[in-house]
Computed example of a mutant assay.
Amino acid sequence: MPPGATPAVEPVVGEPAAVADLGGERALLVADVHAGVEVGLRYERGVELDSRADERRERLCDLLAETGADRLVVLGDLAHRIAAPEGEEREELEALIGAVTDRVPMTLVEGNHDAGVAEAFASDLDVIGADGGVIGGGEGDEDGRAGTGGVGVCHGHTWPDPALLGADVVCMGHEHPRVRLEDSVGGSRVERVWLRGRLDPATFVDGSDADGDAAVRGEPPELVVFPAFNERSGGTWVNVDGQSFLAPFLPDALPAGDAYLLNGTRLGDFRRI
């Protein structure tokens, strides 16, 4: 965590997940579950892998129990298939959503892969639109989208709602950030990472939106880019030359962000790893 900070969003050590105090409830946050990824790899690339659907579902349920969470918030891309889910992917989603909602309510922030799943499971999920929203904050408009304080949530594939600038911290997925680490003898390994740092409001919202700066309450919020929950879903290399970010506002909106391994190890400025 940034030195001296008291984070509103605290990663679960060793896991691609975090907990947040939303005032009246405690939430478990994850991003990019990509349920059905094995089915996708089969029809997209001809790659045959054994399904880890049961493992993904059990990990989520175990994390809910371990953290004492009252709600699960998925920061986009709950599903892998962009179209309406069907076949094995739908079966995985039905089992996963059923297992979670038997325990706690579930909120889905709509990602670029979620149009079909948000519609198919609308009665089981609380859905926040693609440009995000603020949860656990102060009084907002009738849609709960302009509250003050709280946790801003978005997926990251599109320009976010300027109301997120009024949050204490903004959480996003989409990037699946990871690093390649090398040792002195040339060996290497791949690690998923968190990216965290103070957000630059001027580059976080669409440049055509003149109200972006006005939405900031004092100091700009911290931006937390979540690692992918699904380790098979690829990602953005943050320390490999030529790799570009996916979000329209990154890396500009994170001018001084640090990278952290899942075990909490701080790697320093993600641009210098």
Rank of each mutant, 00 (worst) to 15 (best):
E92A: 11
G166M: 01
D168V: 00
A120W: 04
R103I: 12
A79S: 14
V74A: 01
V109E: 01
G152V: 08
C154F: 14
G68V: 02
D102K: 10
T67V: 03
T158C: 14
V151G: 05
D114R: 03
P160T: 09
E139R: 14
N112I: 06
I135T: 11
G111L: 01
V151S: 04
D124G: 13
D70Q: 02
L93T: 05
H113S: 03
V179Y: 09
V179L: 11
G132V: 09
V100N: 09
D124Q: 15
D126F: 13
V117P: 03
D114Y: 09
H174C: 11
R178S: 12
M106E: 02
L108D: 10
F121W: 08
G144Q: 04
E142Q: 13
I128Y: 12
M106H: 07
E92I: 06
F121A: 04
L72T: 07
G137N: 09
V153D: 02
D143L: 14
T148Y: 10
V100G: 10
P162E: 06
L108P: 07
P85F: 02
V169M: 00
E91S: 14
V153Y: 04
A83R: 15
G111M: 00
T67N: 01
G138V: 01
L75E: 05
A83D: 13
L125K: 01
P105A: 08
L93V: 00
A99I: 01
G133T: 10
D114S: 07
E94M: 09
D77I: 08
V73I: 15
G76T: 10
L78V: 11
C171P: 04
G98C: 07
T101V: 13
R178K: 15
P160I: 04
H176C: 05
I128K: 13
V73T: 06
L165V: 00
M172L: 13
G68N: 04
E175V: 02
A130L: 12
D141G: 15
A95W: 08
E91T: 14
A69C: 00
E94Y: 05
D102S: 14
G111P: 07
A83L: 12
R103K: 12
E119Y: 13
T158V: 15
N112L: 05
L125R: 00
A120S: 14
V169S: 07
L96D: 07
A167I: 02
G138R: 06
G98V: 11
G132A: 06
L78W: 05
L72S: 07
T158F: 06
V153I: 13
P160E: 07
E110H: 06
A115K: 13
D77C: 06
G149N: 01
P177M: 11
H157G: 12
R90T: 00
G173N: 06
L165R: 07
E92W: 10
L93K: 01
V151H: 05
